[in-house]
Structure formats: structure tokens, C-alpha cells
Design a protein around this nucleic acid. Structure first.
Length: 596
RNA sequence: GCCGACGUAGCUCAAUCGGCAGAGCAGCGGUUUUGUAAACCGCCGGUUGUGGGUUCAAGUCCCUCCGUCGGCUCCA
């Protein structure tokens, strides 16, 4: 007991010392120690950069050969040795010449030195016999790094300075925490992320697939995934009609004229697929829906009286993505945007933006995402449209964010060349942020297509145009939804809401009656009439994450009840079928995301 | 696209040094009729991603392409 206490006390003491050291500093120092280890292993290494990042650190190296997992083990061991040696970190200011001399064999460091402003003080940090160009700060000595609370996680290629025309370096990712417990908690979280991976759950729950033979980055929605999508789409449409939107359907391909006029062939060509020849004309498959919506706008003369027009489409688009970036449902080559375009007068724009923002937040809430972070992207260097319009548009975006009381960050110059925008990132159950919603002004297309409306003054005016995708794309949204709920969808979204589990064959008949009754009432119910034992049927249903398991045996048949088991393992016991139905219907009706 | 790793049955994974491709689960057939997370027996299942090369012999070594994974970059 005493031993335990003293260990505990030592841990507490270390914890309190370590707590004073910022994690960033710890991580940055760890990256230096890692670089030292790599340099010991490969004296000829050319060093890139090695910053602290969220959850850890990395360092980029130019090495004579690819690193292996065995190398990582060796590097980690060398790091532990350095930590035990308690080498002090020494900060030193040097002149530009000294720095050049010091790093004469380090081309990447030299490049960084050359790019530093003349008046900047150049500092280096030494520990042991390792020296690095570095702003700091660092821990006092390597012994302050907990040797049992770090791990080297992976090696990956990374271009020098993120530029694909520069050499590719090898990046080692590592993580370090104050204590072993925190490290373990982090590694456990990584495992949880893996368990929730939508690609894995997509297969296990039979939701979707991709097919190598038929092309990468193209999604096949299976019946269960399709059912969820249909529910999402129905709900989405209903909300849009209620929100004053109309629904459009437009073609998948358009003649080159359309894309020349829109400017896509000039500015977005690398995202588009090669044209197909139809009767000697070039047709392109659409990467965006906007030009089509504009054609509908222009199909007749528009009056200010009919503005604003809010036109939405679940529009399927195809964009070329480099093979290396494809990722499950989250990054694909064909996807369906929940797109809409709003055409309005300058006077209406502020209300419209506020409306879209509210609408979006509402929608996210309905799907169980409460935590939203906004980003306001302003005018970039190179931009089309009058500055006054930019200013008005940006202000209306900002005002909408402020009226809604949404916390936001400004992404200075981060807007598209054709207009400012608001992006929303939503946080999932594991606290990860996903960029989904985008609300973008467009000063470009109305010009290019010469869109006009007739104002009260009888003259022609240029309408404002706003693009917005709220869920983003159904594919990506579905991917995030799967991970957010770990495949255990809320009742209203669950592809199968209840499974009837007859205990023996003689109960199948009754189970079928109950199934018919529940189905007629609108519930999605399956019957497991396989020859398995009840326990196996329950296990199967559990693994499929079906919300309700309705067990029926002799007692239920006699009493006209079902015995209700939840996928949470909770057992509600027997209840009349009507009672169960009322419960389920109520939860579906209110689109309850948590209760069963 | 680039760097690295990987690709064996529907899924998860074995196969020593280059020497007869194997298991569990799933599926199918049978037996069992069961009270809240896996009954038992049997059967089926493969041109080892693709094409080429080295070798007496290739899942294993070399090259090509396709795909997947981790990144870089970009984005819904």
C-alpha cells in the first residue's frame, strides 16, 4: 500500500511539474529529440522542419533510403537514451553569417535562413550534439520529456514546403503527452476512431461499397444505405419546401458552350472530365450545378417581384480527384450535393444570408450535430466584382454570423475569386471537425451569363447570387453521420428499426402478424425466422445495431405482447404491441436522436 | 499525381529458406425448437488484384498496370 502511494505521489509530482510545460513546447522539443536520433542513425540526413501539431509532432527528413518500422523502433530507443541523459536545451542568437556557416550542409535550413526578414533575430537551439534552426521555446532539458508517454506513429511522404515540385521528404509522425495515462488514452482514442471508420462500418452494416473493377471513388449505395439516404432526402426536401425553396432537376451533361460561358473550362478544367462527343459537339459531365440553374433563371424574363428565388437540387456532380486523395465516402469522384442557389436583390441579401445560416443550423441540429464553428472567408488578392459589392456581401455574412451569435474566425483573403463565403465546420461525437456547409457569394456567374431582373424602376438590374450546400454532399454527410453515431443510427434514420425474434418455430406465425401490424403503421421491421437459437438472433441484431429487438415466445403469443430489448442492452420487458408501437412512433415523429 | 506500405475465399487472417494454398466467421444442407450477445454435424468456396519476367519450381524474387491504406496537396 505504501509502495502504491509513493508511486502515486511521484506521478502526482511529475504531473504538476509537467502541467506547467505547455504541450506544444513538449511536442516541439520531442521533435528535436527525434531529429537528433535520426541524425545519429543517418549522419547524412538533411533536415526539413519539425513542428508541434494537434495531438503530437512531426519532423521531415531527406534520407538516403526509406524508413522502416524497425528504424522507428531504433529511433524511439535513441530518443529514450537522450531523455535519460537530460541534455539541456541551449538557446543561442546567431548572426546570419554564423547561421549560414552552421547549416552549410543543410540546404533546407539554408533556404529558411535566406527567406527570413533582414531584421529578424535568428535563434538556434542545441541539445547534446544536435543543433537546429528554431524559434523555440523548448523544455529546459531533454529529461523533462516523459520517456513513457511518447510514441512514433507513422512515416509518410511530404513535399518540402508542401510544394509538389519540390523534393519529397520522409515525415515521421509522433505523439507525446505529459503522462503515460494520457498517451494511452490518446492511443485508445485512435482505436475508437478506427472502430468507427465509416469504411469498415459501411461494409459491416452493408451500407455501401466501392468497386475497383468499376472505378475508384464511385459509391454504390446498398439497400440499407439507400434507405437511410432516402430518409435523409425526404426530410431534406420537406425542410426545403417549408423554408421557401423550390426543387429543380437538371441534366448531368452540358455542351461546351455552357462551360465556356460559366468560365469552368478556364478556371476549373483540371477538376473536369474529358468531354464526350455527341453528334460532333463536346459535352461535359457536370462538376457543378450552378450553370444549369442559371439557365432556368434565364428561361424567361424575371421581375423583382418574384425575387428572392431559392432553388435547390440534389445534384449529382463528377469531379476529377487525384487518385491518392480518394477516401471512402469522404473524398470521392462522383457525389450528390445538396445544392441551392438563391437569386435576390441587393436589399434582400442580408435577410437571405441570415435565413440560410439559420436553416443550416436547424438542419444540423436535426441530425444531432449541435457544435458548429464558422469561418468567414474574405476577398482574395485576385478577384472579380466591384469592391463595394464585396464589402456589402462580406458585411451581410458577418452580420448574419453575429445575429446568430455564432463564434467565427476570419479567413482573410480565403474567399473564392468570385465572392466571399461562410464555411461551417461541424463537430462529431469524437470532437473532430468536418467542413460541410458552404455559403458562397458569386459575383462572377451573373455577369458571365448576363443575368438580369426588371426592377420597380422598369430597368434591368443584376441579381445577387448565392451558392449554398448545407450537408455538403450526401456521400460525405453519410460518412460523417456513420462515424458520429458509430453506425448506431437514431431511430428515425435506422434502416431497420426493429427485428422480431421468435424463440421457436411455433412463434413465427405470431411474429409475422406483429411484423405486418408494425409495418402497416410505418415501422421498418424485419423478422428473423432463421433456424438459429434466440441468443444467436439477438447477437446478430446487436451487431447490426438494430434499435429494437422484439422477442416473442409462448408468453408473448398468449398475451399479445412483445418483449422489447434495446441495442443498448437494456431490456424493457414485455409490453402490448400497441404500447411498443406508440413509443417507437413518438420517437420517430420527434426525430429523437438519443432515446430509444 | 507524388512518397511509403499493402493486395491470399464474401470478411478477418495463416502458409518456415522459392517446394502439394489453409483456418475461423459468413453462405448452403441437415439435426436441434431453444427466454435476452455465437447449438451441433456436414458441404461449398481460390487462375493468391492484373499483365509480363527470372526459375526445374513463384502466394513468396523482379518489372508494369489497377486498387487499398497512411501522408503531401486540394476540396463537398
Amino acid at each position: 500500500m505504501r509502495g502504491f502511494c509513493s508511486i502515486w505521489r511521484i506521478r502526482q509530482r511529475r504531473r504538476s511539474v509537467m502541467a506547467e510545460i505547455e504541450l506544444d513546447v513538449l511536442r516541439h522539443s520531442a521533435s528535436h529529440v527525434m531529429a537528433e536520433a535520426v541524425q545519429k542513425l543517418f549522419p547524412e540526413v538533411k533536415l526539413g522542419i519539425g513542428p508541434a501539431i494537434e495531438n503530437g509532432f512531426y519532423y521531415d527528413f531527406d534520407l538516403p533510403r526509406p524508413l522502416t518500422p524497425e528504424d522507428l523502433a531504433k529511433i524511439a530507443e535513441l530518443m529514450r537514451q537522450s531523455i535519460r541523459a537530460k541534455h539541456p536545451f541551449i538557446r543561442q542568437e546567431v548572426s546570419r553569417e554564423q547561421a549560414r556557416e552552421l547549416f552549410r550542409d543543410q540546404p533546407y535550413k539554408l533556404e529558411l535562413i535566406e527567406e527570413m526578414p533582414e531584421d529578424e533575430v535568428i535563434t538556434i537551439y542545441r541539445h547534446d550534439d544536435f543543433v537546429d534552426l528554431c524559434r523555440g521555446p523548448h523544455v529546459e532539458h531533454t529529461g523533462q520529456l516523459p520517456e513513457d508517454a511518447f510514441a512514433l506513429l507513422s512515416v509518410a511522404g511530404a513535399y518540402w514546403r508542401g510544394d509538389e515540385h519540390r523534393p519529397m521528404l520522409q515525415r515521421i509522425y509522433g505523439t507525446i503527452w505529459h503522462t503515460k495515462e494520457e498517451l494511452q488514452a490518446y492511443l485508445e482514442q485512435l482505436k475508437e476512431i478506427e472502430r468507427r471508420d465509416h469504411r469498415r462500418l459501411g461494409r459491416e452494416l452493408d451500407l455501401f461499397s466501392t468497386h475497383e473493377e468499376a472505378g475508384a471513388g464511385l459509391i454504390y449505395w446498398h439497400p440499407k444505405g439507400g434507405r437511410i439516404r432516402a430518409i435523409i432526402e425526404d426530410f431534406w426536401r420537406q425542410r426545403h419546401f417549408e423554408g421557401g425553396y423550390e426543387i429543380l432537376y437538371t441534366p448531368h451533361i452540358g455542351r461546351s458552350w455552357l462551360w465556356e460561358t460559366s468560365g469552368h473550362l478556364d478556371f476549373y478544367r483540371e477538376g473536369m472530365y474529358s468531354p464526350m462527343d455527341i453528334d460532333g459537339q463536346d459535352f461535359y459531365i457536370k462538376p457543378m450545378n450552378c450553370p444549369f440553374h442559371i439557365l432556368i433563371y434565364k428561361s424567361r424574363r424575371r421581375s423583382y417581384r418574384e425575387l428572392p428565388l431559392r432553388w435547390a437540387e440534389l445534384g449529382t456532380v463528377y469531379r476529377y480527384e487525384r487518385s491518392g486523395v480518394l477516401h471512402g465516402l469522404l473524398r470521392v469522384r462522383g457525389f450528390t450535393q445538396d445544392d441551392a442557389h438563391i437569386f435576390c436583390t441587393p436589399e434582400q441579401i442580408e435577410d437571405e444570408i441570415l435565413g440560410v445560416l439559420r436553416f443550416s443550423l436547424d438542419l444540423w441540429k436535426a441530425f444531432g450535430f449541435e457544435d458548429v464553428q464558422a469561418y468567414l472567408a474574405t476577398r482574395p488578392e485576385k478577384a472579380v466584382g466591384e469592391p463595394a459589392r464585396w464589402e456589402q456581401a462580406t458585411n451581410s455574412l458577418r452580420r448574419a454570423l453575429e445575429i446568430e451569435g455564432l463564434s467565427y474566425e476570419i479567413d482573410e483573403g480565403g474567399g473564392a475569386f468570385y465572392g466571399p463565403k461562410i464555411d461551417l465546420k461541424i463537430k462529431d461525437a469524437l470532437g473532430r471537425e468536418w467542413q460541410m456547409t458552404t455559403i458562397q457569394f458569386d459575383f462572377n456567374l451573373p455577369e458571365r451569363f448576363d443575368m438580369v431582373y426588371v426592377g420597380a424602376d422598369g430597368r434591368e438590374h443584376r441579381p445577387y447570387m448565392v451558392h449554398r450546400a448545407l450537408l455538403g454532399s450526401l456521400e460525405r454527410f453519410f460518412g460523417v453521420l456513420i462515424e458520429h453515431y458509430a453506425g448506431a443510427f437514431p431511430l428515425w434514420l435506422a434502416p431497420v428499426q426493429a427485428r422480431l425474434i421468435p424463440i421457436a418455430d411455433r412463434h413465427v406465425e405470431y411474429a409475422r402478424q406483429v411484423q405486418d401490424q408494425l409495418r402497416a403503421a410505418g415501422l421498418r421491421v424485419e423478422l428473423d425466422d432463421s433456424g438459429e437459437r434466440m441468443n444467436a438472433k439477438i447477437r446478430t441484431a446487436q451487431m447490426e445495431k438494430i434499435p429494437y429487438m422484439l422477442v416473442v415466445g409462448d408468453r408473448e403469443v398468449a398475451n399479445g405482447t412483445v418483449s422489447v430489448r434495446l441495442r443498448t442492452n437494456e431490456n424493457l420487458g414485455a409490453m402490448p404491441v400497441k404500447e411498443f408501437l406508440a413509443r417507437a412512433q413518438r420517437l420517430v415523429e420527434e426525430r429523437n436522436n438519443t432515446a430509444l
